[in-house]
Simulated assay, not measured.
Amino acid sequence: MNITSFLLYCFIVTFTPGPTNIVILSTVHNTGTKKAMEYTYGATIAFGFLLVISAVLNTILVTIIPKILFVMQIIGSFYMLYLAYQVYKTDTSKPTVNQTGTFMSGFLMQFLNPKVVLFTMTVIPTYIMPYRVSMPTVPISVIAITVIGFLAFITWVLFGALFKEFLQKHQKFVNVLMALFLAYSAIMIWM
């Protein structure tokens, strides 16, 4: 197993902008770090859970992946477009109840996020199982990848917290930019 390639893949996929990272940044911007952390905890637990599912059910999933991927692409695309619309229309000058910064929304987002689903379905069978199928190796790998994902999410929370004043000053521009990133993510699923 090429550890360098494995780590690069994990870091690139988890740290680059994607639906979860963009929602985290938007949540920090609109409702603060505490709500973003709540969302992050839900996203991290679901991320780890998806990795476990991939590791345990990999051989079964191989036969049905095309059907799952197609359904996930449709649901995920529409959900990301919905999130893009929500981010675009957000107005922090009016007090609102924001449901995107909850533990449950972070948890559920992972199951609808094609980037996460594709990553979790491919990383274990591609980088771990062909080389080591022993009992301690697979669970340790799942834990390591989950920690990398958590670090990526925390990085986006910190980025949002550090630049909160700038983000608030340029709120409309930031909301439009985040909405465009989410819409781009939704469109790229089909490319």
Rank of each mutant, 00 (worst) to 15 (best):
V13M: 00
I187N: 07
P139N: 11
K115T: 06
V71L: 10
Q73E: 03
L180D: 13
T63P: 06
F11S: 12
N98V: 05
Q86G: 14
F111I: 10
I148Q: 07
I189F: 08
F103K: 10
V157K: 13
T40I: 05
V174F: 08
G18N: 07
Y131P: 14
F49K: 00
S77F: 11
V23D: 12
F47G: 09
Y79W: 15
Q110F: 04
M121I: 09
K35R: 08
M37H: 04
G48E: 01
W156D: 04
T126I: 03
I143A: 08
S26R: 00
I64M: 04
V97M: 10
V117G: 04
V157G: 14
M104Q: 08
Q171T: 06
I45N: 09
Y184V: 14
G42L: 03
W156S: 05
I12V: 15
I60S: 03
A55M: 04
F119S: 13
Q110I: 06
M129G: 08
Y127P: 14
T27L: 09
L51N: 06
Y9M: 08
L118E: 15
E38C: 12
Y9F: 03
G106H: 02
M104I: 15
M80N: 02
E165P: 02
I12T: 13
L151I: 10
S185F: 10
Y184T: 10
I12C: 04
Y41N: 03
V142N: 09
F181N: 03
I65A: 05
V62F: 04
V176P: 14
S54H: 01
V28T: 06
